[in-house]
Simulated assay, not measured.
Amino acid sequence: MGYTTNDIARIREKAREIRRDSISMIHLAGAGHPGGSLSAADLIAALYFKELRIDPRNPQWPDRDRFILSKGHCCPALYAALCGRGYFGREQLETLREYHSMLQGHPDMRKTPGLDMSSGSLGNGLSCGLGMAMAARWKQKDYRVYVLLGDGECEEGEVWEAAMAAAHHHMSQLTAIVDINGLQLTGPTQEVMNLGDLAAKFRAFGWNTSEINGHDVEQILRALDYARETDGPTAILAHTVKGKGVSFMENRVEWHGKAPSDQEAARAIEEIMRA
């Protein structure tokens, strides 16, 4: 597909907007997961504002690319991207987690236009993505499937069952992106359950791998190009910073699932927008 310097600049700006909107949404809701939303912002911006073949005017277009946010608790970043692409108006962002809102605390495909899977039960996304990719093959469709996982999520055994099956069936239309921010709910991933070398693990399961800085837009786009042009399933191992862009949230486990106060939200948005 290729990319230009204008693409890179635009994605950086969109990632900034995703971070700003994520903080604002979580602050208004009084609950949510800022750390992982901020770490994934650059990855989601690259997908929604460059990579994915989608049509906001026709969310159920049969030939669209599919995206699954397997780490569904980080949905504020996804909702911000969907809004930015025109799936719904900005007024909806102010309703995060409200009872009748289309924007629930975990993605609900019955409520939110543009979603391909209701997610949040960690470990399920890659299996569902594999099923979508297999359906594309059987239907002789060329759409691609992208699954964004957390590194803590990769402690789930189902992830590796799906990885084994995807390699066995040579699912070239499937790409897994792992947001490796090093922290999960109860502490550092290497202390909760040491994952070791995730790239080596995916290679051992028969996947192509690409290891990148998950905040470097050019590296992200290059990895997505590689995934599209390579035979077999591809895993992009994206090293990120939890809470990226907000100094007092970066690499702090307590910001995994906590809403900022009025003062904290104002400071966070100021830091994001001047970065």
Rank of each mutant, 00 (worst) to 15 (best):
G125A: 07
A266Y: 04
G123C: 04
V145C: 07
K141E: 15
C128K: 12
F49Q: 11
E94F: 02
A266V: 12
P56W: 05
E250D: 09
D225V: 11
C154M: 12
A235F: 02
S24W: 02
W160D: 12
S70Y: 03
T209G: 04
R252M: 11
L185Y: 07
P188E: 15
A41P: 14
P34E: 00
V246H: 05
H215T: 10
R252V: 14
R19W: 01
Y226H: 13
L198T: 06
G86A: 05
G72A: 10
G123R: 04
V147W: 01
K201D: 06
D225E: 15
I220E: 10
L185R: 12
L47R: 07
A176Q: 02
C74Q: 11
V253T: 15
R12W: 00
G243F: 00
L115M: 06
L198I: 15
Q173G: 15
D197C: 12
L96Y: 12
G245C: 05
D142I: 02
R53I: 04
K111A: 12
G114H: 13
I269T: 07
A46T: 03
K50H: 15
R53W: 00
A135C: 10
H100V: 01
H106Y: 05
N58F: 04
C74E: 10
H100Q: 10
N251P: 14
E264D: 07
L183Y: 03
L28C: 07
I177H: 09
A265Q: 08
S172P: 03
Y87L: 11
L43A: 04
Q60L: 13
E91K: 13
P188N: 09
P59Y: 01
Y87H: 06
L174M: 11
R64Y: 09
I11R: 08
A200W: 07
V217E: 08
T4C: 10
A259I: 11
I54M: 14
A81G: 06
T175I: 12
A133D: 09
R10T: 15
S101K: 10
G129D: 08
K111M: 14
N181S: 09
A162Q: 03
V178Q: 07
R90G: 13
G157K: 03
N208C: 09
L52P: 13
L174V: 04
L78V: 09
G214L: 05
I44F: 00
E270T: 08
A238F: 01
L224D: 06
G232D: 00
